[in-house]
Design a protein around this nucleic acid. Structure first.
Length: 212
DNA sequence: ATACCGATTGGCT
DNA sequence: GCCAATCGGTATC
């Protein structure tokens, strides 16, 4: 019998993103009545990473990334989508992990309502869809998901996997759709996914920019 | 005050 | 495969 899922402590997240990311695969993420099993995540490495929102230093929006691990960074993009990151690493490193794909384990009725008319495989396939099915938005950015009893109540929970992911199924590769992430950024294995999962998003190269 | 742009998605060719 | 939608954040004037 696999052990019952347990809530992941702040120490789990307070390590470099490249160490945390592979262990997030298979983990359970719950918010607003829907539980996902993570199948795809992507690391953003702070001020050394041209593809990161933290690259040019803190702004009002990105301030939470520069704080300690265990907080949510949720941002709005393309006038439509809320994308969800977990802040990781040590305070000041401004590292975060983008949740890019998941399989719905619980809360199917809510998930179906939030993704009306969409086939189940696509309920949380891609970061914008994942944010929608978990009903995350501006209100959740900056919230501490390791100590939900403190401060404003947030029912965002990250737990260990129901069943451990076979390490042989973990894959890494280039990021998806990130502009301005050229140079050394392209050689880092910043994206992690579980091989063979239908909820992993399709690969698209990032758009090239003349200058950054 | 204003211009530019995106860690995406869904629809159409 | 290609492209428009849409608006908040950020930089610039």
């Amino acid at each position: 019998m696999p052990p019952r899922p347990t809530r992941l402590p702040r120490d789990f997240f307070a390590r470099p993103g490249l160490d945390v990311a592979p262990h997030l695969l298979g983990c359970r993420v719950t918010h607003a009545g829907v539980t996902l099993r993570l199948t795809e995540v992507e690391v953003y490495a702070g001020q050394i990473d041209p593809g990161s929102h933290a690259f040019r230093g803190p702004t009002p929006r990105t301030a939470v990334m520069f704080g300690p691990a265990g907080f949510l960074y949720v941002y709005f993009t393309y006038g439509a989508h809320w994308c969800v990151n977990l802040v990781v690493g040590h305070e000041g490193s401004a590292e975060a992990i983008l949740l890019r794909g998941g399989e719905v384990l619980a809360g199917r009725d809510l998930a179906r309502d939030r993704r009306a008319g969409i086939r189940e495989r696509d309920w949380a396939r891609g970061p914008g869809r994942l944010g929608q099915v978990l009903a995350l938005g501006r209100a959740e950015s900056g919230c501490d998901f390791c100590r939900p009893a403190m401060g404003k109540p947030v029912d965002f929970v990250v737990e260990s996997p129901d069943t451990p992911v076979d390490p042989g199924r973990v894959r890494t590769g280039p990021r998806v759709g990130v502009s301005g992430a050229g140079g050394d950024a392209e050689i880092y294995p910043w994206r992690f996914w579980i091989d063979g999962e239908p909820t992993v998003s399709a690969y698209r190269p990032g758009v090239r920019r003349a200058r950054q």
